[in-house]
């Protein structure tokens, strides 16, 4: 059975800035998978654990965060903080018996960079392999 994953990406302003300047069509032309929905943030350090969990509650099969390189964050420690929150969710997913790989943190260079597309492709492939989220939707 074919499966198109629902992947939610939370990206900081700086890592996604120029890549997004190409527009959706440009991104697709670069090979950015359709399965990934981008949410732009001023800084990944602003991300709350609950926001990432809500993405799973809302039906995401996979979630990832793209922030600045750990030692070169525009806001000094924002991407480091985000990485720790992603780590906390990995632990919680494991406790719930769900693959921790369903959430990932990427530290990417700012501006136009092929790694932005590569991260999305990697998550698309990973989540397609893992299959649909074990969380069943509709019970709020």
């Amino acid at each position: 059975m074919s499966f198109t994953p629902n992947i939610q990406a939370f990206c900081c302003h700086y890592t996604s800035q120029q890549t997004l300047a190409e527009g959706p069509q440009g991104l697709l032309a670069d090979g950015f998978p359709k399965s990934v929905t981008i949410h732009r943030l001023v800084c990944t350090g602003k991300l709350e654990v609950s926001t990432l969990l809500k993405a799973f509650e809302d039906g995401a099969d996979g979630v990832y965060v793209a922030g600045c390189p750990a030692d070169k964050c525009h806001n000094l420690m924002g991407s480091q903080r985000a990485a720790k929150r992603v780590g906390a969710i990995k632990k919680a997913l494991a406790e719930l018996g769900v693959e921790p790989e369903r959430i990932e943190m990427y530290h990417l260079e700012r501006g136009f960079h092929p790694d932005f597309v590569k991260a999305a492709q990697e998550m698309d492939e990973r989540i397609t392999t893992l299959g649909p989220s074990p969380f069943q939707g509709g019970t709020k």
Partner: peptide
């Protein structure tokens, strides 16, 4: 949120 996810699972 985690309780809801656990129950959903």
């Amino acid at each position: 949120s985690l309780i809801r996810l656990g129950k959903q699972k």
